[in-house]
Design a protein around this nucleic acid. Structure first.
Lengths: 348, 348
DNA sequence: GTTAGCACTCTTACTTATTGAGTGCTAATT
DNA sequence: AATTAGCACTCAATAAGTAAGAGTGCTAAC
């Protein structure tokens, strides 16, 4: 579609703009990129590229700036999964950053986001592991007062989900212990997702003394697994984004910071896409208007073969997509490794 | 120490500076504050106040700005606890903001911090409830793999503390259940703090089958209660601070934001003081150099008569201390109320 | 002790040029 | 037919100069 020279010009503009953040003109291209033609020719090509929607001007006599379409073209044509296989060595490097003994997975994810932010100089975002797809290890019901039961669910990786169940009739502490033990034993090694099926048929058909109580408790328990209220999202290196010249203007800075402060927006930015291993959202591709000038690169991380969370970066559209994708991918792989190692007892 | 007229002048400068953020001159004072003397007299008084350390100039011919000493003087002389008793009515107002049913205390504290930020237009900070001074409700030990035990401790308010215990010798799941039950029963209604005493004498003198295991597990359990790693600190309304004209300069903004992003600094700013109900730190009084241009007002909140957390605001030194103290105090009282109501079953 | 008056200082806002990087068009060149 | 040199024109950014305004500090008069 684009002849070779147009492609070269486009890449030159993108490359230069990623580095400097300044609109780039025809003469600058002839000076720094050897295309073997004069600036007048470049000028004509750039004019064509503008007509095709790949370049924009900031004012009538300014240089050109890549459009969203240009970035999308760049990512689609110059990224493929084979690139990723290259620097697996960096995984160990990342894991070596983690000197402390981690007692909390959430803390680990947060710290990795911090490292990602430091490394990339962008703002890193991460979604803490979700418990839904993981296996049940233990269920404990505790009486809080006459109307409330505290339910604690633990998965095999040590993640905890708690929820308060409001109930109008009293169940004694002894009975709750009995029910807890029964549930733990009965549901162990099923995933939290599978609770739904159990509710549908399995568990309630068992002979069990407290079937009536279960009938009321289980659906509430199941609902609480998915509520996003407990979803934790981390944004680290927020000030990094202010280093970019595009945010020298305090009002622009305020705008972008209010996005980074808004957990709802961050969660939806991280979850509102197909669960691709790597996902790149450029400018307009984002759902929220307030993010139209930003790009978000995310990767999923897994535990036990199931996707449990996300990590990524967020920043101005002008970013070195290919390099950043590689870095983020290595991070997501590392987290997956760490999660699998950590709780399977193979190491340490 | 200060004669009446000097006091009036000082208050005028503070009042005006809190509102406008601009240095204030003698003529402005005569215009807006009726002191009955000419600007020349004010000029002389201001010069004296500068010599006494209450006022500063930003350059040789600028107006005056209050010093840290001036703010300290203002707070010490015009705030006393009786002021607080006034607007208890606002408590209900605050509680009415909370429409949702809260299932997580942490979430509740975070949301209240958000409301505090909205109300004051400052950045609100809060320390989530600490479990140390509260009573034990339940202890559960779960085997993660052959070297690790997951310990889950629940307090009577439903707060959960988890920690991974590394152990080199295997304890079977059945035995862990047995030990868990014993600990829950034996330690129930003691505070986590009191665990220490129990370790010292009480519990280990009991006749108990797994005394050796306990001897190793308990100290680790106790240590984990205090670790700050799990301490959660919330900073809400971060962008509010950028509305102040003192942060129109992006570099100043970056500086203050990096403080707000630094959880360590926030935690130490919130904890590094005597546990006064209300604590005001003005500029230089803060520990960290990066906070010398900020003031922090904090209040403690309680549960069951014990201090369990903190909430406050942070912003430029130019703040309406008295009003803000009142607001924060009402918040801390409200949280205390909510915590006490919520888990005692008196309401809802 | 207070105040009017004045010289002086410093910041801020507003003009006005000037420069430089860029475009687009036309006509000449290959 | 594609390329390029040349030129007029545009716009943003920078610098320099000016004027206005708010302020101080000092002196002399009230």
């Amino acid at each position: 579609m684009l002849d070779e020279r147009k492609l070269k010009v486009l890449l030159a503009v993108i490359d230069s703009y990623i580095i400097t953040g300044e609109p780039i003109g025809s003469r600058t291209i002839t000076k720094f990129y050897d295309l073997g033609v004069s600036s007048a020719t470049i000028r004509n090509e750039m004019s064509d590229l503008e007509d095709l929607g790949y370049l924009n001007k900031t004012h009538t006599s300014s240089g050109r700036v890549p459009s969203d379409k240009a970035y999308r073209f760049y990512v689609d044509n110059f990224f493929n999964n084979s690139i990723l296989q290259l620097d697996l060595a960096r995984k160990d490097q990342i894991k070596s950053f983690l000197k402390k003994e981690y007692k909390e997975i959430d803390q680990l994810i947060d710290d990795l986001a911090k490292i990602l932010a430091q490394l990339t100089k962008y703002t890193a975002v991460a979604l803490s592991p979700q418990i839904r797809e993981t296996k049940i290890k233990h269920i404990q019901l505790l009486p809080m007062d006459e109307n409330q039961i505290l339910a604690i669910m633990v998965n095999e990786a040590g993640l905890i989900k708690k929820s308060i169940i409001n109930t109008d009739n009293n169940i004694s502490e002894e009975n709750l212990v009995y029910i807890s033990n029964y549930l733990s034993k009965r549901l162990k090694n099923k995933t939290f997702k599978e609770l739904a099926n159990e509710i549908g048929n399995g568990i309630l058909d068992d002979y069990f003394e407290y079937k009536n109580e279960l009938k009321r408790l289980l659906p509430i328990l199941f609902d609480s697994i998915d509520d996003t209220e407990g979803m934790k999202v981390y944004a680290e290196g927020i000030t990094n984004i202010l280093e970019f010249p595009e945010y020298r203007d305090i009002d622009k800075a305020k705008e972008v910071l209010s996005v980074l402060e808004d957990k709802e927006k961050l969660i939806s930015a991280l979850t509102n896409n197909k669960l691709e291993e790597i996902d790149v959202k450029i400018g307009e591709e984002n759902n929220h208007d307030s993010m139209k000038e930003l790009s978000v690169i995310t990767a999923t991380y897994n535990s036990d073969g199931e996707i449990v969370g996300k990590i990524g970066i967020i920043g101005p559209k002008r970013m070195n997509y290919i390099e950043l994708i590689k870095t983020i991918w290595v991070f997501s792989e590392s987290i997956t490794d760490i999660l699998n190692d950590y709780f399977s007892g193979n190491e340490r």
